[in-house]
């Protein structure tokens, strides 16, 4: 089997918050994601999904642990890591004053896409994501659906092997969300390794090849939907999620005693 495109080992991030003191937003997370695979990060708001993905995209520095993207470690070689990934989230906005075409050119350039192939790549993207009608309009004049297309196109502008979608559907209407999921599915079929975070169970069920359940900064379980069903005895992802979250929640002591009681 080939090496995974994305791998984390003991990835940990600690924040300090005024009210709560030291908070482990991400606690010893181990993940892998391979080519042609969508790994879903499923968790409630504040579970640590965004923090994990931000560490992978090198915007945040891990407090401890390691993470690799295409064999490049996030702290040692952040530029190479970012060259190999495209990051999309509801909070990654577009520059309003430039046109769709200029947006794609800009992101191809800053991501060091080979210069001689940039123009051809732009045409390809415009064609593929159906941007042709508004390629020369300024982004500020576009509808939210059009903006979404441009946003995805700019995410893959430099044709990176790894894609990160951080709660991409959160601000979208139903049709746009469906379209986005279809696009993500096609990108997987092309061999991209995709990390996809969501708090919507049905979305994870439909789209993801494997699901990592993340709760209070920890990965509670990882596996295909079938594996998760087998291990918990529940059918629906919602029940599976609650099952793991319950085991985790009661108290550390209780969990410890459960562990010790096991033969």
């Amino acid at each position: 089997m080939t090496d995974p495109f994305v791998e984390t080992r003991n990835l940990t991030k600690t924040f300090y918050e005024e009210s709560r003191g030291e908070v482990r937003a991400v606690d010893s997370v181990d993940l892998t994601c391979r080519s042609g695979e969508i790994l879903g990060l499923l968790g409630a708001n504040g579970a640590g999904k965004t923090t994990t993905l931000r560490m992978l995209s090198t915007v945040l520095r891990p407090t401890s642990g390691e993470a690799w993207v295409m064999g490049h470690e996030v702290r040692k070689d952040p530029e190479r890591v970012r060259e190999n990934l495209g990051f999309y989230s509801a909070s990654t906005a577009l520059y309003p004053k430039i046109t769709a075409r200029e947006t794609l050119r800009f992101f191809a350039q800053v991501n060091r896409f080979p210069r001689e192939r940039i123009e051809a790549r732009i045409e390809e993207l415009i064609d593929r994501f159906g941007i042709g009608d508004f390629a020369n309009s300024r982004v500020e004049k576009l509808s939210s659906g059009m903006k979404q297309k441009v946003s995805i196109a700019r995410t893959v502008a430099h044709d990176p092997p790894v894609l990160i979608f951080d709660e991409p559907t959160v601000a979208l209407d139903v049709l746009n969300a469906i379209e986005l999921r279809q696009i993500i599915g096609r990108l997987r079929d092309e061999g991209k390794a995709i990390l996809f975070s969501t708090h919507i169970m049905s979305e994870a069920e439909q789209l993801c090849d494997r699901i990592a359940i993340i709760h209070q900064g920890r990965i509670l379980a990882v596996g295909t939907l079938d594996e998760l069903r087998k291990s918990t005895g529940h059918h629906y992802l919602e029940e599976i999620f609650v099952h793991f979250a319950r085991v985790r929640d009661p108290s550390e002591a209780e969990v410890e005693s459960l562990r010790r009681d096991r033969p």
Binding site: T58, V59, E79, S89, S91, A93, L94, P96, V110
Partner: peptide
């Protein structure tokens, strides 16, 4: 404020 810095920082630019 606009959220574009986030986009820019996830690009490969140093």
């Amino acid at each position: 404020e606009r959220g574009t810095l986030n986009t820019l920082l996830t690009s490969a630019a140093r």
